[in-house]
Design a protein around this nucleic acid. Sequence first.
DNA 1: CTGTACGTACAGTTTTTTCTGTACGTACTT
DNA 2: AAGTACGTACAGAAAAAACTGTACGTACAG
Lengths: 184, 184
Amino acid sequence: MNGEKELEIARERVIDAISKNMNLYGVTESIGRLYGALYFQEGPLTLDEMKEELGMSKTSMSTSVRSLLELKMVGKVWKKGVRKDLYLAEADWYQTFIDFFTIKWRAGISLNISAMQKSLSEIQPLLNNEQVEPHIKEQAKIDIEKLTSAIEYYDWLNRLVDSFESKEIFEFIPKGENKKTEKS
Amino acid sequence: MNGEKELEIARERVIDAISKNMNLYGVTESIGRLYGALYFQEGPLTLDEMKEELGMSKTSMSTSVRSLLELKMVGKVWKKGVRKDLYLAEADWYQTFIDFFTIKWRAGISLNISAMQKSLSEIQPLLNNEQVEPHIKEQAKIDIEKLTSAIEYYDWLNRLVDSFESKEIFEFIPKGENKKTEKS
DNA sequence: CTGTACGTACAGTTTTTTCTGTACGTACTT
DNA sequence: AAGTACGTACAGAAAAAACTGTACGTACAG
């Protein structure tokens, strides 16, 4: 035994866990495996090397790596004399976490807020409209309350994301305290 | 115009946004639409009413509602004299957020931590093994460092989830200061 | 300018997921 | 006890997503 096999097995298990984990967050297992593979590389990889590493088509590598780029989980890297594109896994998982959820959540937040505000502005007038039946008005009132509190929630979520982006969250939950949690 | 149509359109837009948003988080659009529909109901619905509301099969309603139950986004409700199961949307989105991510993240965290610790315990011995080539040892050392810092990150994430679950997060990012009376 | 290496758009295929209808077990009603 | 209403397991159908190979545009080399 020269340790190569052992290392390989140990890595494989972690890559597997990473990809399953990412899958939980709505990312394909293949894309997760690609990230995992890149994570354990010593240096950046070309598309052809990834293809080799995962035994998949180059096309897949191209699209997968693009997804990872959009999530900022990998970065494109420059190396003198190398014509092929090189990609490197982002190694700082705190940063990865922040980017991932900032990107995902912001998108959802603005989508929802604008839909809700638009609907709110359509429902509001019903309350003062003579032609609208009392029963409908009652429903409108309830809906307005629901939408108002939903928007309030999204405002909170936005502030939470702000605290991720600005890293202020680490003042509240400090990084690598490295002491085990007292409970659980 | 009696306002009914307007209300319907306004709701439909929000339901659409909600389901797209949930889809972003890895939940089917259908399940998202079901949650949205339940959210705007005045009271709890039976499976047959959902089926009617969404124009889908009862089987689908059964499985979708189960997913929502697991995510604690709906609750089963009991009403005297009613034999059918009744389901009500959880209206507090702060709570929904907390439950959703607590459930999802905890699963991923423990999965990853145990995989990493196991791999770590396999890699560590390589360092002191005479038969392992220096080159492999070098890689092992790098991997150990990576895994150690990854585990540290997961510990942080665990503490973040703790702060969600215990609601301490609201001390750091306060809920909306609007009308609603808050109980501390 | 011509030839070559590279990344990716696109169309077709395979795989996975979602959805439906039937059938069955359970529990309540009479 | 039989009859009925209900929810869901299961298998197959339909839809969606992931994956691949070909073909093409671009950039650089000679």
